[in-house]
């Protein structure tokens, strides 16, 4: 059917409804489902946190200063991500890419720190196979780390996108969603920091 119709290819937007607002709402709903996912993992952690099965507890494993450094790196990246959005809103391509670059670097530092912490635990024989507590610890923190990884890929792709296409309405919408995602991961991390590390250390 469609083939017989003369098709005009235009980039003109037809406003029978607000597409950008729809996309943003969709992204919010997605974030909400991700929230439920993390909430489930938190619940699992809460159930298993004392099931150390003779293995180490959080108090013996975690080093708070190290985690604090991680946290600082991620929180700063959230701030620079905000600066990137501000630059984008002013239409400043260069600054946008710069601040996203800084965000990327800070996120990468966070990720590397997290992975090296995991590596250390595994080398000591305290891997996810050791106990229910460690299974849930690695999964909860690791799921956040996986999100960070996806976020880093997204930031990289976004930089390419901004570089090639400049900052138009679509780009701005996507930048806004990316920053929502990044801030969301920040909030989740605050919870992880509190529930997993702080409570874990206090529990001793």
């Amino acid at each position: 059917m469609a083939a017989e119709i003369e098709i005009h290819n235009t980039n003109r937007l037809i406003e029978s409804y607000d597409r950008d607002a729809t996309t943003i709402l969709g992204f919010w709903v997605y974030l909400m489902t991700d929230c439920v996912l993390f909430a489930s993992l938190f619940a699992v952690f809460a159930v298993l946190r004392n099931n150390t099965f003779g293995g180490p507890s959080g108090a013996t494993l975690f080093s708070l200063p190290y985690v604090l450094a991680e946290t600082f790196s991620l929180l700063t990246s959230s701030f620079t991500c905000g600066l990137a959005v501000l630059s984008a809103q002013r239409g400043n391509k260069k600054h946008t890419i710069f601040w996203f670059g800084v965000t990327f670097l800070l996120g990468l530092i966070f990720l590397i720190m997290e992975i090296s912490e995991f590596h250390k635990f595994v080398k000591m024989g305290d891997s996810w196979q050791r106990s229910g507590f460690l299974s849930s610890y690695f999964t909860l923190v690791g799921t956040h780390g996986l999100h960070i990884t996806i976020g880093l890929i997204w930031i990289a792709v976004m930089c390419v996108y901004v570089y090639k296409r400049g900052i138009g309405q679509t780009t701005l919408k996507r930048i806004r969603m990316l920053s929502l995602f990044w801030h969301f991961l920040d909030v989740v991390w605050i919870f992880i920091f509190t529930v997993v590390y702080l409570f874990g250390a206090l529990h001793a």
């Binding site: 699992v44 298993l48 099931n51 150390t52 099965f53 196979q129 106990s131 229910g132 299974s135 849930s136």
Partner: peptide, 20 residues
């Protein structure tokens, strides 16, 4: 994860909790 990576979420033993 329990089946492929050897974690202990729901195993009997190993600190797992099947009721969860």
């Amino acid at each position: 994860f329990d089946r492929d990576l050897g974690t202990h979420f729901f195993t009997s033993g190993g600190g797992g909790n099947m009721m969860m």
